[in-house]
Computed example of a mutant assay.
Amino acid sequence: MAEQIKIRAQIQGEITDLRILLQHPMETGQRKDDKGQTLPVYFIQTFSVNHNGKPMIDGQLNTSISKNPLFTFKARGIKVGDKLTINWQDNLGDKRQDEIIIA
């Protein structure tokens, strides 16, 4: 199973700054290993953020995203005690979901 998603949320008045780090090697299929063999394509395909169970962000990624992608967002309406759930799935079917309660 993939490493835990790192989620940080900082409320500043009505705006919340979100920082989400997805830990994944993100291979493009163009690099070669030490023996000259092409490394297979391996990347996060879908990514979503839910706020208290309701979709907030729903996106698709591709091979052009770097290893361990970091996403930052600004959002309104997030309060202390709310729950954020982050999900991703890669092209091989591996999945990860983590959540935090806003403190």
Rank of each mutant, 00 (worst) to 15 (best):
M1I: 02
M1T: 09
A2K: 08
E3V: 05
E3P: 11
E3S: 14
I5K: 03
K6G: 08
K6I: 13
I7R: 02
R8D: 10
R8V: 11
R8A: 11
A9R: 04
A9K: 08
Q10A: 11
I11S: 06
Q12I: 10
G13T: 10
G13N: 07
I15G: 00
I15C: 01
I15Y: 01
T16K: 03
D17I: 08
L21V: 13
L22A: 08
T28F: 06
T28A: 13
T28N: 12
T28M: 03
G29E: 09
Q30R: 14
R31N: 06
R31Y: 02
D33E: 10
K35L: 07
G36P: 01
G36C: 04
G36R: 05
Q37M: 10
T38P: 00
L39M: 13
P40G: 05
P40F: 05
P40R: 03
V41S: 15
V41T: 13
F43N: 12
I44Y: 12
I44L: 14
T46A: 11
T46V: 14
T46G: 10
S48V: 00
S48F: 04
V49K: 01
N50R: 04
N50W: 02
H51V: 08
N52D: 15
N52Y: 01
G53N: 09
P55E: 10
P55T: 07
M56K: 14
D58F: 06
D58L: 12
D58T: 15
Q60V: 13
L61T: 00
L61P: 07
T63G: 02
T63S: 12
T63K: 13
S64R: 13
S64G: 00
I65S: 05
I65E: 04
I65H: 07
K67R: 14
N68G: 09
L70T: 13
L70M: 14
F71Y: 14
T72Q: 12
T72P: 00
F73P: 03
F73I: 01
K74F: 12
K74P: 02
A75L: 02
R76A: 11
R76M: 08
G77A: 00
G77R: 01
I78R: 05
V80P: 01
V80C: 01
V80D: 07
V80E: 13
G81A: 15
G81N: 15
L84N: 04
T85L: 13
I86Y: 00
I86F: 06
I86K: 05
N87L: 02
N87S: 14
Q89Y: 00
Q89K: 15
N91W: 06
L92G: 00
R96M: 10
Q97E: 15
Q97K: 12
E99V: 02
E99W: 09
I102Q: 04
I102M: 01
I102Y: 03
I102P: 01
